[in-house]
């Protein structure tokens, strides 16, 4: 695979990363588990990318968070907010539409 293709794929994946993270956060999770769950799905995201992204989504009120200090190791948990649910649904809908459009283009060519 040449470099241009690689870069385009990275860009495409980056564009969908928010949707993937929001999807994973439908259930309350902490950062490390989110990285692992994504990895299991074949989605490789660096922690250094995911953690700032989680914080950004939180600042946009798409995620809520809280610290759990009951364990010896404190962990910050994230979960989809009401606004996040609405946004995730809109993104999913858009994703389906785009997929249909791409298929239509495929049929034309």
């Amino acid at each position: 695979m040449d470099r241009t293709t690689e870069n385009l794929i990275i860009e495409l994946r980056r564009g969908t990363l928010v949707m993937m993270v929001l999807s994973v956060c439908q259930k309350e999770e902490y950062g490390y588990v989110i990285v692992e769950r994504l990895a299991k799905l074949g989605i490789s995201v660096e922690a250094s990318t995911l953690y700032p992204l989680l914080r950004r989504l939180e600042s946009q009120d798409l995620l809520t968070s809280h610290w759990d200090t009951t364990d010896a190791r404190p962990r910050k948990y994230y979960q989809l907010s009401e606004k996040g649910k609405t946004v995730l649904n809109a993104l999913k809908q858009e994703w389906v539409t785009m997929q249909e459009e791409i298929e239509k283009i495929g049929e034309l060519s």
């Binding site: 950062g31 953690y51 914080r55 404190p74 962990r75 910050k76």
Partner: peptide
């Protein structure tokens, strides 16, 4: 952020 990175 420091606490979160440490936890990670």
């Amino acid at each position: 952020v420091g606490a979160e990175i440490k936890a990670l």
